[in-house]
Design a protein around this nucleic acid. Sequence first.
DNA 1: ATCGTTTCCGGGAACGTTTGCACATTAACA
DNA 2: TGTTAATGTGCAAACGTTCCCGGAAACGAT
Lengths: 343, 343
Amino acid sequence: MFESYTIKDIAKALGLSTSTVSRALNGSYEIGAETKKLVLEYAEKVNYRPNPIALSLKEQKSHSIGVVVCEVANDYFSQAINGIESIAYNRGYHVIITQTHESFDRESTNVKHLLSRHVDGLLVSLSAETADTSQYKYLHDKGFPIVFFDRVAADVNTHKIIANNFKGSFDATELLIKAGFTKIAHLTNSNNLLISRERFDGFKAALDKHQLDFKPGYLKHCNHGGMIQDEVELAVKELLNMDEHPDAIFIASDRLTISCMHILKRLGIKIPQDIGIAGFTNSDVAELFDPPLTVIRQPAFQIGQMATEMLIKTIESKWPIEDFITEQVETELIIRSSSQKLF
Amino acid sequence: MFESYTIKDIAKALGLSTSTVSRALNGSYEIGAETKKLVLEYAEKVNYRPNPIALSLKEQKSHSIGVVVCEVANDYFSQAINGIESIAYNRGYHVIITQTHESFDRESTNVKHLLSRHVDGLLVSLSAETADTSQYKYLHDKGFPIVFFDRVAADVNTHKIIANNFKGSFDATELLIKAGFTKIAHLTNSNNLLISRERFDGFKAALDKHQLDFKPGYLKHCNHGGMIQDEVELAVKELLNMDEHPDAIFIASDRLTISCMHILKRLGIKIPQDIGIAGFTNSDVAELFDPPLTVIRQPAFQIGQMATEMLIKTIESKWPIEDFITEQVETELIIRSSSQKLF
DNA sequence: ATCGTTTCCGGGAACGTTTGCACATTAACA
DNA sequence: TGTTAATGTGCAAACGTTCCCGGAAACGAT
């Protein structure tokens, strides 16, 4: 039944006061053994569950956490959310998810909305458009719990969970180089995002190590994170139409990787004969692609879990936290034939 | 700022009572024009937002809806959840998502948990294991708002949103037949699910129409909905090892379709040369598969939206609802080469 | 001057909890 | 017999709202 018993009901039924019942339920030492037993048994019998809303009001805690991501229909984020939910559920928190669709305005209003919902903390992965992180800085300075994951704000000193983007990029790029590709382009997200810069650095470092020089024309940013199909298409076409066009593309985000594959398919470009491909994605079906796709995969589920654990620890901490840590997790390079150069 | 102003604060600052402020904010006719203006302006200035938790306690409504699905990391369900969120957000509800992982026990505890959270209504897609729907019947009889989507409970008379499973299956099967396949197997979910039975009926009807007889050995149920990889693998292998093995498989669920593709790939089975494939899935990358996969696609986003609209309408209805409707939406058959017979 | 109406506003209860405090009972002690 | 301590229980406030009442002031009509 969904009309639930309250402490008042129990008190009335047992001829006790609500305070006594409350204390008995919470195992207070100042309640007699038999009274306690009486209450506990009755509560069990009628399946008493404390009203979480009343508790929230009393404790001034909503027991909910707000999540800000660009979109949920995305392999990386749906896996991360899975991780977030799994921890939150067990710890008695519920999760309110909001999507920015890579828009800074949406992100701001989402944060405001979550705050007006009185969430106890925020789990944030920035939108591609976001350059201004002052709202987070402000909240964080006021002591509001925030944990960033994946797309972190460089200038807000709070807990963060990130993948080893440099190494992931370096390894993937080096893989392409070792396979024999020499003219490697880089398709990436907005430069606002720290991950874009880190991934670029890894890419560049691999080039440097193998004495390949970096062509500025081979670097393409999609400032809307792949939400605008035309933007990606334009970038890809520009690469393909260059006089000395690239023989491989290293792609730095999940959505861009998938978009790019669609575009290449539509254009009839053969992989890896015409162009080699390696990209970040958490798709579980990259193995089934034609050709099977070489990917850099992040432990999205674990990242979601770690971020949530950290956030809840921060929320429930008795003292203000001053030591904020940045956890780094390793990526996984899964080599398939899209990155194999054919001679 | 996240410490928000309360009505009390406003009352104190303006030398009014909380009742007056509350009424002014709600535009009550019994408040003088200038008082109202004063309050409204001050509230605007300090960016007053009513505390949703206090409101919930007062109104005995949590403004949240519970969602029960088998998993979120699934193309169909992540798209549906996207639709659910989009409506709920606009209507001022938040969404609590729970996953059954196709287990009936998990489903029961999830429902109990959501109820103890005082959700105002439930959006449910049954687990593959669920045969007993009495808990929903009970709640529904008590007047608790429930809307089923996709995997509906046949014997609970409430609002439902389903795809035209019969037609989707019929069309896909007929497509395989017309392509020249004659020995078509059917890989599907547990028979507990109404959608499995409907999809089987569509499959069977197409066979009948074209005078192909149905071989019981060609029907394989995965009672755990594809959550157990070995179960799917066994089913697929049994089909392939039959004396007169099928020349095509029609697959009736998202997860099974993807699982089956992985298994066939690992076994080195060529599609469509060795076996033709068509299956239900909402994957956005089926086009990129090797070979491109013929799919039956459901309008998952819209289904999520419709279900949520219906649920909120039921929640907010003044009178008890007696006319419950079942909305049916059409599926989309996307023909690609996995279902093209090569001679 | 008295009464009824209108207009405007405040007091206080209620929603379901927790918790500081006060109180009652009993037992032990002087 | 009175004092103290220990034990067990209840009252009431608080969290932020809404809303039923009751009431004060102003006004016109009698």
